[in-house]
């Protein structure tokens, strides 16, 4: 299945290193994305007024205060801004399953809190999040229902949030041994 179809079916992948697209405004980019999904669902394109309103509302959720609509996609964004922008896009597209790939890497504490707040606000009984991280730190803000440890492409250990704490204390070496 091509990635755009997966996306339109409700899977969102946040990037660890979001790419820059010069000359393409965030407004144009998001509008194209939102309408691509609506087209896939057999819905008419969203009106400009409705879209602008939605953009403003979701921007507030991730505390992007400056004017985002005319900035080019990720061009000149700081590391933290890029990550916030990923969460913003996730909020716009309202996916059922979101995969956040090391969203916490390179984030300062404030940005980390904002990103986590965004995830917590979006989380409801109809959607799920897979958060990929190496550190407990993010999980102070996003409290996981399940924790899985991947090693060599396979889940080698599962548990609840306590497992993350255990890992933080003991490291990963002991998990490797479980596989053998």
């Amino acid at each position: 299945m091509p990635p755009e179809e997966r996306a339109n079916l409700g899977i969102f992948l946040s990037f660890q290193y979001p790419v820059e697209i010069p000359g393409v405004s965030m407004q144009n980019f998001m509008r194209t994305a939102v309408n691509a999904k609506r087209e896939y669902q057999g819905l008419p394109p969203m009106s400009m007024i409705e879209f602008t309103k939605m953009m403003k509302q979701k921007q507030a959720m991730v505390e992007i205060t400056e004017k985002l609509q005319n900035r080019y996609v990720n061009v000149g964004f700081s590391g933290g801004e890029k990550k916030k922008n990923e969460i913003f896009q996730m909020a716009m597209l309202e996916p059922e399953l979101s995969i956040l790939d090391e969203t916490d890497s390179g984030l300062d504490i404030d940005a980390l809190r904002i990103v986590a707040n965004g995830v917590n606000q979006l989380h409801n009984e109809h959607n799920a999040f897979v958060v990929i991280t190496h550190y407990q730190r993010l999980l102070d803000y996003i409290v996981p229902d399940f924790v899985h440890v991947m090693y060599d492409g396979r889940i080698v250990k599962s548990g609840d949030k306590k497992l993350a704490l255990e890992l933080e204390e003991k490291g990963y070496e002991w998990v490797k041994e479980l596989k053998l």
């Binding site: 091509p2 990635p3 755009e4 996306a7 339109n8 969102f12 992948l13 990037f15 979001p18 790419v19 697209i21 010069p22 000359g23 393409v24 144009n28 980019f29 998001m30 194209t32 994305a33 691509a36 999904k37 896939y40 080019y72 896009q89 597209l93």
Partner: peptide
């Protein structure tokens, strides 16, 4: 790929990127 992941098909993505350029 980034555009695809946001649900934008490749041909539309090219149009978007080229127009930006």
């Amino acid at each position: 790929f980034y555009c695809n992941q946001r649900g934008i098909p490749t041909e539309k993505a090219i149009g978007l990127i080229v127009n930006g350029y």
